[in-house]
Amino acid sequence: MLGIHQIYGRRRVQLNIILPLLCRYYYASRTDNMLSTNVKTLRKTRNTPSRPVTVARLYSSNKHNSKVPKVPTWEPLGEDRIPSLPQVSSDLVDKLERLALVDFRTKEGLVCLERAIRFADHLNMVDTTGVEPMDSVLEHGQLFLRGDTVTEGDCAEKLLPLSNTTVEEYFVAPPGNIPLPRREERASMLKHSEF
């Protein structure tokens, strides 16, 4: 096992010089046989700020485990490699808002979607020819099936109080089968609904 002194060098330096420059390590002194890197208790004494203290320093020639890559093994994909710039038309905005029943609210919301799409487009760089889509990580095993019998229920009195508006044993909804108003009217409706 490599000892700490083989890995890290030490140097006595002035605290006020090294502060901005160096890595500082703290170490709560514990048992000796623990392999701890980085090692020195460093106590900054406020009234004597220039008092020399010993710190452990990572040298650039620090021994590095050969199995751990020294530099990143990939690069973030450049934006230029993404096939197309997404275009979210106003029709699509309307459609999404109706489907999702949430609104973009601001221009930023739309920019956020465009960025999300652009990010997702990276997927098309992966060759997935002949790969079966994966729904579940439990696909290989048989899931447990219980008997087809009612085991719980009859708890209306527990559930109804969670609703904001009920009449007797019914949840009450406003009139149905009315499509959301057009986009421009929606904005005022939601504005009205702000707290």
Partner: peptide, 26 residues
């Protein structure tokens, strides 16, 4: 309370933050 859908949309508009709404839309 003008319609069920309007109530849904308004409740979700008021209830979710921008991150949640953004992920739902995406």
């Amino acid at each position: 309370d003008s319609s069920t859908d309007a109530m849904y949309a308004a409740s979700r508009h008021e209830g979710f933050n921008a991150v949640v709404r953004g992920r739902i839309l995406s």
